[in-house]
Design a protein around this nucleic acid. Structure first.
Ligand SMILES: [Mn+2]
Ligand SMILES: [Mn+2]
Ligand SMILES: [Zn+2]
Ligand SMILES: [Zn+2]
Lengths: 141, 141
DNA sequence: GATATAATTGAGACTGAATCTCATTCTCAA
DNA sequence: TTGAGAATGAGATTCAGTCTCAATTATATC
């Protein structure tokens, strides 16, 4: 079992940052939300619960969560960012339905290996990658 | 030899749209520019030449060029779109250097095939895809 | 527990890309 | 040549995301 709060705390300590009520609220919401969430949505969800966290702090905290490796920022082609927790989850990429917006996750070790090969050929040091396939899902095609 | 103007004309006709001086200027500039260009850059380049085309028309025309399959809109993680001509060019994907911004193009038939397989498994109809690898190029690592 | 210090927060101003509005101008088929 | 519909440009608008700064809070030390 992975403990996101402890991971975050460790990260914060290493940067001499503090674990505030607001940061804890964002972390918990992001971590226990199952899918791909957006900042605006997060603002509303938190407001409807006990916590009231400003937009500025939401964005600031999401950045910290990305830096600490707990969360990944992704672009699903909606004109704004989405976030998903990755701590304790295996890496995956996305099929994105252009009609209903559904996102299907997939993992393909062979593709990953071929990407590594490509980087080696160009002596390129990979930090991250995205494989996004846009189209129509089986219900929308 | 591919003739972008004719392709564009055919597309415009099919939609009952007109080939204006402005649209021709944007098409030519995009098509003869070798790399990945941004809308703002295009505005300036055209202004420094004979043609003066408004921002609104630049964006409107780029959309038409994308629709007609002449140009591809890509996201290199800069917070705004880039465009590259694809008519007469083979499909490729990108390595993006996070330090110097260099973009290295690559083509990998095996990755493409694996992507097709993944779509089949989910009965997903692919329209487009992007494989972007972010990291540091050999000069920046 | 009190105190000091540095970090954090929120309200709202600001930015930059992209889109929209609408009065004027242009294209092209007839 | 002309008319109907399409296109343009200036500038207003939108929207996500960032920044500013005065007020607040977390934590280490006493
Ligand atoms: Mn996902
Ligand atoms: Mn390219
Ligand atoms: Zn769908
Ligand atoms: Zn580089």
């Amino acid at each position: 079992m992975v403990r996101p709060v402890e991971t975050f705390l460790k990260y914060l300590d290493s940067k001499h940052l503090k674990l505030t009520r607001e940061r804890k609220a964002v972390l918990e919401e992001v971590f226990f939300h199952p899918g791909h969430l957006e900042a605006e949505e997060l603002t509303h969800t938190l407001r409807s619960k006990k916590s009231r966290v400003s937009r500025a702090t939401i964005y600031r905290t999401l950045e910290l969560l990305v830096d600490s490796g707990i969360v990944r920022k992704i672009d699903l082609g909606h004109g704004h960012s989405h976030y998903e927790h990755i701590l304790g989850h295996t890496h995956h990429d996305h099929l994105v339905c252009l009609k209903c917006g559904k996102v299907i996750e997939f993992t393909d070790k062979k593709i990953e290996r071929l990407q590594t090969n490509i980087c080696q050929k160009s002596r390129f040091q990979e930090i991250s990658h995205t494989v996004q396939i846009f189209g129509y899902c089986k219900d929308c095609r």
